[in-house]
């Protein structure tokens, strides 16, 4: 089972952990250039994962900013035992969940507003990119969305996703495949209409 998961994930792991580790060490001694480098390498992963939780671009933009401030302030506390990406995403996850909790406390949304379909601002990306992202946020379940984002954008391994989301590896794998299937169906549908 573990071998199977490794075979499937090694092909797409995109970020050499040791490079991020090196950046973390530089951050720990207050190197701002390292913060900028880390930001460029991981910002899409942080924003995408946060978006999959908050489903709100403005909130996730705040989370994006807060995440790097927190990374900057806590870099010395990071220990090399885990992967930097898991650590960064755990921070993003906690901040995103706090956003959700804040909202619940301060905004009494009407029930019909809860399931508002998702919309990316027109200023971001091109139309095709926006639509694909909107589709992912609208047609996937919460768990499928978290998993596909973590795997495709963050380059996390299925095993790491299982740990981060506190799910069984087999569940992560089956939801991942279901999510890919749904996205493929969406893209093929769009292309057929063009």
């Amino acid at each position: 089972m573990i071998f199977l998961a490794l075979l499937q994930t090694t092909q797409i792991a995109y970020n050499a952990g040791s490079h991020l580790d090196a950046l973390m060490s530089r951050l720990a001694v207050g190197d701002k250039d390292a913060l900028a480098e880390l930001y460029h390498e991981t910002r899409a992963a942080v924003y995408g994962f946060s978006l999959s939780i908050t489903k709100n671009p403005a909130d996730s933009e705040d989370v994006l900013q807060e995440t790097y401030l927190k990374i900057w302030a806590n870099a010395e506390r990071y220990t090399a035992k885990g992967t930097p990406m898991s650590w960064i995403l755990t921070i993003a996850k906690n901040l995103s969940l706090m956003k959700l909790r804040e909202k619940k406390r301060h905004q009494d949304l009407e029930p019909e507003e809860w399931d508002m379909s998702f919309h990316i601002p027109d200023t971001a990306g091109n139309t095709e990119d926006r639509h694909l992202l909107e589709a992912a946020l609208n047609i996937l379940t919460d768990e499928e969305r978290h998993i596909i984002l973590l795997h495709a954008v963050s380059g996390l391994k299925h095993r790491e996703i299982a740990e981060l989301l506190d799910m069984a590896l087999a569940t992560v794998l089956s939801k991942y495949h279901r999510a890919l299937k749904k996205l493929r169906k969406y893209i093929e549908g769009v292309e057929a209409n063009d």
Binding site: R43, G48, A124, D129, I148, A152, V153
Partner: peptide
């Protein structure tokens, strides 16, 4: 996955 990743990267704001 690469197409999806590209879409997320393009839509990520710069802060």
């Amino acid at each position: 996955e690469l197409r999806f990743k590209k879409a997320v990267e393009a839509c990520t704001p710069d802060v």
